[in-house]
Design a protein around this nucleic acid. Structure first.
Length: 418
RNA sequence: GCGACCGUAGCUCAGUUGGUUAGAGCGCCGGUUUGUGGUACCGGAGGUCGCGGGUUCAAGACCCGUCGGUCGCCCCA
Protein backbone atom coordinates (compact mmCIF):
# COMPACT_ATOMS: atom_id res chain seq x y z
CA UNK A 1 0.00 0.00 0.00
CA UNK A 2 1.52 3.26 -1.08
CA UNK A 3 1.54 6.22 1.31
CA UNK A 4 -1.57 8.36 1.02
CA UNK A 5 -1.10 11.75 -0.54
CA UNK A 6 -2.29 14.60 1.64
CA UNK A 7 -4.94 16.58 -0.24
CA UNK A 8 -3.92 20.15 -0.95
CA UNK A 9 -5.76 23.29 -0.05
CA UNK A 10 -7.75 24.67 -2.97
CA UNK A 11 -5.94 27.43 -4.78
CA UNK A 12 -6.71 30.90 -3.49
CA UNK A 13 -8.23 29.67 -0.22
CA UNK A 14 -6.61 30.24 3.16
CA UNK A 15 -6.07 28.38 6.39
CA UNK A 16 -6.02 31.16 8.92
CA UNK A 17 -3.98 30.54 12.06
CA UNK A 18 -2.03 32.41 14.69
CA UNK A 19 -1.45 36.06 13.93
CA UNK A 20 -3.40 35.90 10.67
CA UNK A 21 -6.43 34.50 12.46
CA UNK A 22 -6.12 37.11 15.22
CA UNK A 23 -5.94 39.92 12.67
CA UNK A 24 -9.02 38.61 10.88
CA UNK A 25 -10.95 38.33 14.14
CA UNK A 26 -9.88 41.81 15.24
CA UNK A 27 -11.28 43.37 12.05
CA UNK A 28 -14.60 41.58 12.49
CA UNK A 29 -14.79 42.52 16.18
CA UNK A 30 -14.25 46.21 15.40
CA UNK A 31 -16.86 46.07 12.69
CA UNK A 32 -19.39 44.44 15.00
CA UNK A 33 -18.78 47.15 17.59
CA UNK A 34 -19.04 50.07 15.17
CA UNK A 35 -22.11 48.73 13.40
CA UNK A 36 -23.82 48.62 16.79
CA UNK A 37 -22.82 52.24 17.41
CA UNK A 38 -24.63 53.22 14.21
CA UNK A 39 -27.65 51.01 14.71
CA UNK A 40 -27.08 48.59 11.85
CA UNK A 41 -28.79 45.24 12.40
CA UNK A 42 -26.97 42.02 11.91
CA UNK A 43 -28.27 39.97 8.97
CA UNK A 44 -27.25 36.56 7.64
CA UNK A 45 -27.90 35.52 4.07
CA UNK A 46 -26.98 32.28 2.27
CA UNK A 47 -23.54 31.68 0.81
CA UNK A 48 -25.24 29.95 -2.09
CA UNK A 49 -27.92 31.57 -4.27
CA UNK A 50 -29.69 30.92 -7.56
CA UNK A 51 -27.29 32.06 -10.29
CA UNK A 52 -29.85 34.58 -11.55
CA UNK A 53 -29.54 36.61 -8.33
CA UNK A 54 -26.07 37.67 -9.42
CA UNK A 55 -26.24 37.48 -13.18
CA UNK A 56 -29.25 39.79 -13.29
CA UNK A 57 -28.17 42.31 -10.71
CA UNK A 58 -24.48 42.63 -11.55
CA UNK A 59 -24.96 42.53 -15.31
CA UNK A 60 -24.19 39.65 -17.65
CA UNK A 61 -21.22 41.39 -19.24
CA UNK A 62 -19.35 42.17 -16.04
CA UNK A 63 -16.19 40.18 -15.43
CA UNK A 64 -17.56 38.92 -12.14
CA UNK A 65 -20.52 37.27 -13.82
CA UNK A 66 -18.96 36.29 -17.13
CA UNK A 67 -15.82 34.61 -15.83
CA UNK A 68 -15.34 34.74 -12.09
CA UNK A 69 -18.35 33.04 -10.52
CA UNK A 70 -18.33 29.62 -8.92
CA UNK A 71 -21.48 28.36 -10.62
CA UNK A 72 -22.66 24.80 -11.03
CA UNK A 73 -25.80 22.77 -11.43
CA UNK A 74 -26.97 21.21 -8.20
CA UNK A 75 -28.33 17.67 -8.04
CA UNK A 76 -31.76 18.90 -8.97
CA UNK A 77 -30.42 20.53 -12.12
CA UNK A 78 -30.73 24.13 -10.91
CA UNK A 79 -27.91 26.55 -11.59
CA UNK A 80 -26.56 27.82 -8.28
CA UNK A 81 -23.67 30.15 -7.48
CA UNK A 82 -21.38 30.72 -4.53
CA UNK A 83 -21.94 34.41 -3.69
CA UNK A 84 -19.32 36.69 -5.25
CA UNK A 85 -20.64 39.69 -3.28
CA UNK A 86 -23.20 40.49 -0.61
CA UNK A 87 -25.47 43.14 -2.04
CA UNK A 88 -27.44 41.07 -4.54
CA UNK A 89 -28.26 38.36 -2.00
CA UNK A 90 -29.36 40.91 0.57
CA UNK A 91 -31.57 42.61 -2.03
CA UNK A 92 -33.08 39.23 -2.87
CA UNK A 93 -33.77 38.58 0.79
CA UNK A 94 -35.25 42.06 1.21
CA UNK A 95 -37.76 41.37 -1.56
CA UNK A 96 -38.50 37.76 -0.79
CA UNK A 97 -39.17 38.27 2.93
CA UNK A 98 -41.24 41.42 2.77
CA UNK A 99 -38.60 43.46 4.57
CA UNK A 100 -40.00 46.51 2.78
CA UNK A 101 -42.23 46.91 5.84
CA UNK A 102 -39.13 47.78 7.90
CA UNK A 103 -37.73 50.31 5.42
CA UNK A 104 -35.53 52.18 5.71
CA UNK A 105 -33.47 49.25 6.85
CA UNK A 106 -29.88 49.42 8.05
CA UNK A 107 -28.19 46.06 7.69
CA UNK A 108 -24.72 44.68 8.29
CA UNK A 109 -23.12 41.32 7.65
CA UNK A 110 -19.77 39.69 7.06
CA UNK A 111 -18.49 36.39 5.76
CA UNK A 112 -16.86 34.55 2.86
CA UNK A 113 -17.29 35.42 -0.80
CA UNK A 114 -16.02 33.51 -3.83
CA UNK A 115 -14.49 34.72 -7.04
CA UNK A 116 -12.48 32.63 -9.49
CA UNK A 117 -9.54 34.99 -10.02
CA UNK A 118 -5.79 34.65 -10.11
CA UNK A 119 -4.67 34.95 -6.46
CA UNK A 120 -2.30 37.74 -5.52
CA UNK A 121 -1.61 40.09 -2.65
CA UNK A 122 -4.90 40.95 -0.94
CA UNK A 123 -6.90 38.89 -3.42
CA UNK A 124 -8.15 35.37 -2.86
CA UNK A 125 -10.68 33.02 -4.41
CA UNK A 126 -12.40 32.62 -1.09
CA UNK A 127 -12.13 36.01 0.54
CA UNK A 128 -14.00 37.78 3.29
CA UNK A 129 -15.80 41.06 3.52
CA UNK A 130 -17.64 43.15 6.02
CA UNK A 131 -20.69 44.79 4.50
CA UNK A 132 -23.17 47.52 5.37
CA UNK A 133 -26.33 48.51 3.49
CA UNK A 134 -29.14 51.03 3.89
CA UNK A 135 -32.17 49.96 1.88
CA UNK A 136 -35.29 51.94 1.22
CA UNK A 137 -34.28 55.55 1.46
CA UNK A 138 -33.31 57.98 -1.27
CA UNK A 139 -32.04 60.54 1.22
CA UNK A 140 -28.41 61.65 0.85
CA UNK A 141 -28.20 61.48 4.64
CA UNK A 142 -28.11 57.70 4.29
CA UNK A 143 -25.01 57.98 2.07
CA UNK A 144 -23.48 60.29 4.64
CA UNK A 145 -24.16 58.01 7.59
CA UNK A 146 -22.69 55.04 5.77
CA UNK A 147 -19.58 56.97 4.85
CA UNK A 148 -19.17 58.34 8.36
CA UNK A 149 -19.48 54.83 9.74
CA UNK A 150 -16.84 53.58 7.31
CA UNK A 151 -14.52 56.38 8.35
CA UNK A 152 -15.20 55.60 12.00
CA UNK A 153 -14.37 51.93 11.48
CA UNK A 154 -11.08 52.73 9.78
CA UNK A 155 -10.17 55.06 12.63
CA UNK A 156 -11.11 52.41 15.17
CA UNK A 157 -8.89 49.95 13.34
CA UNK A 158 -6.07 52.46 13.37
CA UNK A 159 -5.59 52.41 9.60
CA UNK A 160 -7.09 55.74 8.61
CA UNK A 161 -3.70 57.44 8.41
CA UNK A 162 -2.61 55.94 5.11
CA UNK A 163 -6.14 55.78 3.70
CA UNK A 164 -8.01 58.46 1.77
CA UNK A 165 -11.66 58.67 0.83
CA UNK A 166 -12.17 59.25 -2.86
CA UNK A 167 -15.63 60.35 -3.83
CA UNK A 168 -17.52 60.78 -7.06
CA UNK A 169 -21.04 60.97 -8.39
CA UNK A 170 -22.30 58.77 -11.16
CA UNK A 171 -25.45 60.86 -11.35
CA UNK A 172 -29.02 59.68 -11.70
CA UNK A 173 -30.02 57.38 -14.54
CA UNK A 174 -30.49 60.19 -17.06
CA UNK A 175 -27.18 61.80 -16.11
CA UNK A 176 -25.33 58.52 -16.17
CA UNK A 177 -26.73 57.58 -19.60
CA UNK A 178 -25.89 60.98 -21.08
CA UNK A 179 -22.38 60.91 -19.65
CA UNK A 180 -21.86 57.36 -20.81
CA UNK A 181 -22.93 58.30 -24.35
CA UNK A 182 -20.51 61.23 -24.33
CA UNK A 183 -17.70 58.99 -23.11
CA UNK A 184 -18.35 56.38 -25.76
CA UNK A 185 -18.32 59.10 -28.43
CA UNK A 186 -15.03 60.44 -27.06
CA UNK A 187 -13.35 57.05 -26.91
CA UNK A 188 -14.70 56.01 -30.30
CA UNK A 189 -13.02 59.08 -31.76
CA UNK A 190 -9.68 57.87 -30.31
CA UNK A 191 -10.30 54.21 -30.95
CA UNK A 192 -6.99 53.77 -32.75
CA UNK A 193 -4.94 55.02 -29.80
CA UNK A 194 -6.55 52.95 -27.06
CA UNK A 195 -4.89 49.91 -25.51
CA UNK A 196 -6.14 46.48 -26.35
CA UNK A 197 -7.75 46.14 -22.91
CA UNK A 198 -9.57 49.41 -23.26
CA UNK A 199 -10.82 48.51 -26.71
CA UNK A 200 -12.54 45.55 -25.12
CA UNK A 201 -13.84 47.79 -22.33
CA UNK A 202 -15.30 50.17 -24.90
CA UNK A 203 -17.91 47.55 -25.78
CA UNK A 204 -18.44 46.03 -22.37
CA UNK A 205 -17.85 48.72 -19.77
CA UNK A 206 -16.74 52.05 -21.25
CA UNK A 207 -16.71 53.86 -17.89
CA UNK A 208 -13.87 51.61 -16.87
CA UNK A 209 -11.52 53.15 -19.42
CA UNK A 210 -11.50 56.24 -17.21
CA UNK A 211 -9.42 54.57 -14.49
CA UNK A 212 -7.20 52.52 -16.78
CA UNK A 213 -3.62 52.15 -15.54
CA UNK A 214 -2.22 51.76 -19.01
CA UNK A 215 -0.04 54.81 -19.82
CA UNK A 216 -1.23 54.55 -23.41
CA UNK A 217 -4.81 55.24 -22.27
CA UNK A 218 -4.07 57.99 -19.78
CA UNK A 219 -4.01 60.99 -22.15
CA UNK A 220 -7.29 59.92 -23.74
CA UNK A 221 -8.92 59.13 -20.39
CA UNK A 222 -7.73 62.40 -18.90
CA UNK A 223 -9.17 64.32 -21.82
CA UNK A 224 -12.52 62.58 -21.53
CA UNK A 225 -15.56 64.66 -20.55
CA UNK A 226 -16.38 64.93 -16.84
CA UNK A 227 -19.77 63.92 -15.58
CA UNK A 228 -20.26 67.46 -14.26
CA UNK A 229 -21.19 68.74 -17.72
CA UNK A 230 -24.10 66.28 -17.86
CA UNK A 231 -25.19 66.42 -14.24
CA UNK A 232 -28.89 67.10 -13.80
CA UNK A 233 -29.91 69.68 -11.22
CA UNK A 234 -31.29 66.98 -8.94
CA UNK A 235 -28.19 64.81 -9.18
CA UNK A 236 -25.96 67.81 -8.53
CA UNK A 237 -27.99 68.77 -5.47
CA UNK A 238 -27.79 65.21 -4.17
CA UNK A 239 -24.02 65.13 -4.47
CA UNK A 240 -23.74 68.53 -2.80
CA UNK A 241 -25.85 67.28 0.12
CA UNK A 242 -23.56 64.30 0.56
CA UNK A 243 -20.37 66.36 0.60
CA UNK A 244 -21.95 68.88 2.96
CA UNK A 245 -22.83 66.07 5.34
CA UNK A 246 -19.33 64.67 5.24
CA UNK A 247 -17.86 68.05 5.98
CA UNK A 248 -20.28 68.49 8.88
CA UNK A 249 -19.22 65.14 10.33
CA UNK A 250 -15.55 65.97 9.90
CA UNK A 251 -14.83 63.25 7.35
CA UNK A 252 -12.03 64.13 4.94
CA UNK A 253 -12.66 63.34 1.29
CA UNK A 254 -11.30 64.15 -2.16
CA UNK A 255 -13.21 64.33 -5.40
CA UNK A 256 -12.05 61.84 -7.97
CA UNK A 257 -13.94 62.51 -11.18
CA UNK A 258 -12.33 59.38 -12.68
CA UNK A 259 -13.70 57.07 -10.03
CA UNK A 260 -16.27 54.67 -11.47
CA UNK A 261 -17.73 51.36 -10.36
CA UNK A 262 -17.41 48.09 -12.17
CA UNK A 263 -20.92 46.95 -11.50
CA UNK A 264 -23.88 48.19 -13.52
CA UNK A 265 -26.26 48.99 -10.72
CA UNK A 266 -24.52 52.00 -9.23
CA UNK A 267 -26.05 55.52 -9.30
CA UNK A 268 -25.18 58.81 -7.61
CA UNK A 269 -22.59 58.36 -4.88
CA UNK A 270 -19.56 56.19 -5.63
CA UNK A 271 -16.63 55.99 -3.26
CA UNK A 272 -13.48 54.12 -2.38
CA UNK A 273 -11.20 54.28 0.60
CA UNK A 274 -7.78 53.80 -0.98
CA UNK A 275 -4.31 53.07 0.37
CA UNK A 276 -0.93 52.83 -1.30
CA UNK A 277 0.27 50.26 1.22
CA UNK A 278 -1.24 47.19 -0.42
CA UNK A 279 0.39 47.16 -3.85
CA UNK A 280 -2.05 46.70 -6.67
CA UNK A 281 -5.01 46.04 -4.37
CA UNK A 282 -5.34 49.62 -3.14
CA UNK A 283 -9.08 49.72 -2.50
CA UNK A 284 -9.76 48.77 1.06
CA UNK A 285 -13.42 49.70 1.24
CA UNK A 286 -15.73 50.64 -1.58
CA UNK A 287 -19.35 51.11 -2.46
CA UNK A 288 -22.03 53.50 -3.52
CA UNK A 289 -25.69 54.01 -4.21
CA UNK A 290 -27.46 51.32 -6.18
CA UNK A 291 -30.96 52.64 -6.74
CA UNK A 292 -31.40 50.47 -9.83
CA UNK A 293 -30.59 47.09 -8.35
CA UNK A 294 -33.79 45.99 -6.70
CA UNK A 295 -35.79 46.66 -9.84
CA UNK A 296 -33.53 44.38 -11.85
CA UNK A 297 -34.53 41.63 -9.42
CA UNK A 298 -38.19 42.23 -10.18
CA UNK A 299 -38.97 44.39 -7.19
CA UNK A 300 -40.41 47.90 -6.94
CA UNK A 301 -38.11 50.82 -7.52
CA UNK A 302 -36.16 50.94 -4.26
CA UNK A 303 -33.32 53.28 -3.41
CA UNK A 304 -30.37 51.84 -1.50
CA UNK A 305 -26.73 52.50 -0.61
CA UNK A 306 -24.00 50.22 0.67
CA UNK A 307 -20.37 49.42 0.98
CA UNK A 308 -18.13 46.44 1.51
CA UNK A 309 -14.57 46.15 2.72
CA UNK A 310 -12.06 43.34 2.30
CA UNK A 311 -11.26 41.79 5.64
CA UNK A 312 -7.94 40.42 4.36
CA UNK A 313 -6.89 43.85 3.18
CA UNK A 314 -7.83 45.53 6.44
CA UNK A 315 -6.17 42.72 8.37
CA UNK A 316 -2.91 43.42 6.56
CA UNK A 317 -3.05 47.09 7.50
CA UNK A 318 -3.79 46.92 11.22
CA UNK A 319 -1.20 46.52 13.96
CA UNK A 320 -0.78 42.94 15.09
CA UNK A 321 -3.34 42.24 17.84
CA UNK A 322 -1.96 41.09 21.18
CA UNK A 323 -1.84 37.36 21.81
CA UNK A 324 -4.37 36.26 24.38
CA UNK A 325 -2.40 35.73 27.60
CA UNK A 326 -3.39 33.11 30.13
CA UNK A 327 -4.30 34.54 33.51
CA UNK A 328 -2.61 31.64 35.22
CA UNK A 329 -0.68 28.50 34.38
CA UNK A 330 -0.48 25.63 36.83
CA UNK A 331 2.73 23.58 36.85
CA UNK A 332 2.98 20.05 38.19
CA UNK A 333 6.60 19.95 39.30
CA UNK A 334 6.63 16.16 39.29
CA UNK A 335 4.32 13.36 38.18
CA UNK A 336 2.99 12.71 41.70
CA UNK A 337 0.96 15.96 41.70
CA UNK A 338 -0.62 15.76 38.25
CA UNK A 339 -4.15 15.21 39.60
CA UNK A 340 -3.76 18.13 42.01
CA UNK A 341 -2.62 20.32 39.11
CA UNK A 342 -5.61 19.32 36.99
CA UNK A 343 -7.97 20.07 39.89
CA UNK A 344 -6.33 23.42 40.54
CA UNK A 345 -6.53 24.40 36.87
CA UNK A 346 -10.24 23.72 36.90
CA UNK A 347 -10.79 25.80 40.02
CA UNK A 348 -9.31 28.78 38.19
CA UNK A 349 -11.33 28.19 35.05
CA UNK A 350 -14.56 27.80 36.97
CA UNK A 351 -13.80 31.12 38.64
CA UNK A 352 -13.62 32.76 35.23
CA UNK A 353 -9.87 32.91 34.72
CA UNK A 354 -8.12 31.79 31.54
CA UNK A 355 -6.02 28.96 32.89
CA UNK A 356 -3.67 26.39 31.47
CA UNK A 357 -1.23 23.90 32.87
CA UNK A 358 2.06 22.17 32.21
CA UNK A 359 1.85 18.63 33.51
CA UNK A 360 3.83 16.67 30.95
CA UNK A 361 7.37 16.60 29.62
CA UNK A 362 10.64 16.72 31.51
CA UNK A 363 9.69 17.79 35.08
CA UNK A 364 12.61 20.16 35.42
CA UNK A 365 11.67 21.99 32.25
CA UNK A 366 8.00 22.43 33.05
CA UNK A 367 8.40 25.62 35.00
CA UNK A 368 10.46 27.25 32.26
CA UNK A 369 7.94 26.15 29.70
CA UNK A 370 5.19 27.81 31.71
CA UNK A 371 7.21 31.01 32.06
CA UNK A 372 7.74 31.09 28.32
CA UNK A 373 3.98 30.97 27.76
CA UNK A 374 3.91 34.38 29.49
CA UNK A 375 0.93 34.04 31.86
CA UNK A 376 -0.01 36.72 34.34
CA UNK A 377 0.55 34.33 37.21
CA UNK A 378 2.07 30.94 37.85
CA UNK A 379 1.05 28.30 40.35
CA UNK A 380 3.52 25.51 40.85
CA UNK A 381 2.67 22.38 42.77
CA UNK A 382 5.25 20.01 44.19
CA UNK A 383 5.28 17.35 46.87
CA UNK A 384 7.02 18.23 50.09
CA UNK A 385 7.21 15.63 52.85
CA UNK A 386 4.51 13.65 51.06
CA UNK A 387 2.14 16.64 50.88
CA UNK A 388 1.20 18.46 47.68
CA UNK A 389 2.16 22.10 48.15
CA UNK A 390 1.18 25.03 45.94
CA UNK A 391 3.17 28.21 45.37
CA UNK A 392 1.93 31.29 43.60
CA UNK A 393 4.20 33.59 41.63
CA UNK A 394 2.87 36.74 40.07
CA UNK A 395 4.54 37.88 36.91
CA UNK A 396 4.36 41.52 36.01
CA UNK A 397 1.49 43.55 37.43
CA UNK A 398 -0.32 42.22 40.44
CA UNK A 399 -3.83 43.35 39.66
CA UNK A 400 -5.50 40.02 39.12
CA UNK A 401 -7.69 39.63 42.20
CA UNK A 402 -6.99 35.95 42.66
CA UNK A 403 -7.58 35.98 46.40
CA UNK A 404 -10.96 34.30 46.48
CA UNK A 405 -9.91 31.71 43.97
CA UNK A 406 -6.73 31.01 45.87
CA UNK A 407 -8.73 30.55 49.01
CA UNK A 408 -10.90 28.06 47.19
CA UNK A 409 -7.80 26.33 45.93
CA UNK A 410 -6.28 26.14 49.40
CA UNK A 411 -9.46 24.90 50.99
CA UNK A 412 -9.98 22.28 48.31
CA UNK A 413 -8.11 19.91 50.62
CA UNK A 414 -6.25 18.54 47.69
CA UNK A 415 -3.51 21.11 47.96
CA UNK A 416 -2.04 22.48 51.13
CA UNK A 417 -0.45 25.87 51.40
CA UNK A 418 3.25 26.54 51.32
C1' G B 1 -6.88 34.30 -19.09
C1' C B 2 -1.48 36.73 -19.73
C1' G B 3 3.61 37.77 -17.65
C1' A B 4 7.85 37.57 -14.12
C1' C B 5 10.19 35.33 -10.00
C1' C B 6 10.26 31.25 -6.53
C1' G B 7 9.48 25.73 -4.45
C1' U B 8 15.76 21.98 0.29
C1' A B 9 13.63 19.27 7.81
C1' G B 10 7.42 21.62 11.42
C1' C B 11 9.40 27.12 10.58
C1' U B 12 13.46 30.58 8.52
C1' C B 13 17.23 29.45 5.37
C1' A B 14 22.57 27.63 3.65
C1' G B 15 24.22 24.16 0.07
C1' U B 16 30.48 27.22 -3.98
C1' U B 17 31.71 26.18 -11.70
C1' G B 18 26.85 19.41 -11.30
C1' G B 19 31.07 15.32 -7.55
C1' U B 20 31.27 10.94 -1.35
C1' U B 21 26.46 9.21 4.03
C1' A B 22 22.16 16.95 2.19
C1' G B 23 23.59 21.10 6.73
C1' A B 24 22.53 25.32 10.40
C1' G B 25 19.36 28.20 13.58
C1' C B 26 14.60 28.07 15.83
C1' G B 27 10.87 24.63 17.45
C1' C B 28 9.86 19.58 19.41
C1' C B 29 11.54 15.22 22.64
C1' G B 30 15.20 13.51 26.24
C1' G B 31 19.67 14.08 29.43
C1' U B 32 23.18 17.04 32.29
C1' U B 33 23.81 21.84 34.58
C1' U B 34 21.39 25.74 37.29
C1' G B 35 18.01 25.59 41.56
C1' U B 36 12.40 29.77 43.45
C1' G B 37 13.61 29.51 38.43
C1' G B 38 12.76 32.80 31.55
C1' U B 39 20.47 29.76 31.97
C1' A B 40 24.15 26.86 29.47
C1' C B 41 25.79 22.39 27.34
C1' C B 42 24.97 17.43 25.18
C1' G B 43 22.03 14.06 22.56
C1' G B 44 17.60 12.46 19.67
C1' A B 45 13.51 12.32 16.34
C1' G B 46 12.34 14.66 11.66
C1' G B 47 14.02 15.47 4.49
C1' U B 48 12.55 9.89 -1.55
C1' C B 49 15.63 18.39 -1.99
C1' G B 50 7.04 20.00 -4.66
C1' C B 51 5.88 16.08 -8.42
C1' G B 52 7.03 13.61 -13.36
C1' G B 53 10.23 13.09 -17.32
C1' G B 54 15.10 14.25 -19.66
C1' U B 55 20.66 15.41 -20.14
C1' U B 56 25.12 13.22 -17.58
C1' C B 57 29.78 8.39 -15.31
C1' A B 58 27.30 11.60 -11.58
C1' A B 59 21.49 16.23 -10.61
C1' G B 60 19.16 19.56 -4.72
C1' A B 61 21.92 22.31 -8.59
C1' C B 62 21.14 21.98 -15.87
C1' C B 63 16.61 21.30 -19.57
C1' C B 64 11.19 20.31 -20.42
C1' G B 65 6.50 19.56 -18.35
C1' U B 66 3.22 19.81 -14.25
C1' C B 67 1.32 21.38 -9.48
C1' G B 68 1.76 25.07 -5.83
C1' G B 69 3.43 29.98 -3.88
C1' U B 70 4.56 35.24 -4.55
C1' C B 71 4.17 39.74 -7.29
C1' G B 72 2.21 42.42 -11.54
C1' C B 73 -1.66 42.84 -15.79
C1' C B 74 -6.88 42.18 -15.87
C1' C B 75 -10.81 42.59 -12.25
C1' C B 76 -12.20 44.00 -7.65
C1' A B 77 -13.06 44.69 -1.43
Amino acid sequence: MSPTETPQRIRGTQDLFGEEARRHAAVVASFERVRGLYGFQRVEVPIIEPTAVFSRSLGETTDVVSKEMYSFDDRGGDSVTLRPEFTAGIARAYLGNGWQQFAPLKLATHGPLFRYERPQKGRYRQFHQIDAEVIGTAEPSADVELLVMADHLLRELGVSDGVTLQLNSLGDTATRDAWRAALVAHFEAHRGDLSEDSLARLDKNPLRILDSKDPQDRPIADAAPDIDAHMSVEAGAFFAAVTRGLDAAGVAWTRNARLVRGLDYYRHTAFEFVTDRLGAQGTVLGGGRYDGLIETLGGPSTPAVGWAAGIERLAMLIDAPAVARADVIVVAEDDSVVTEAIAATQIFRNAGYAAGNVITGAPKKRYDKAVKADPRALVSIRRIDGQPVERLKMLGEHALGFEETLTALRSSARVSVA
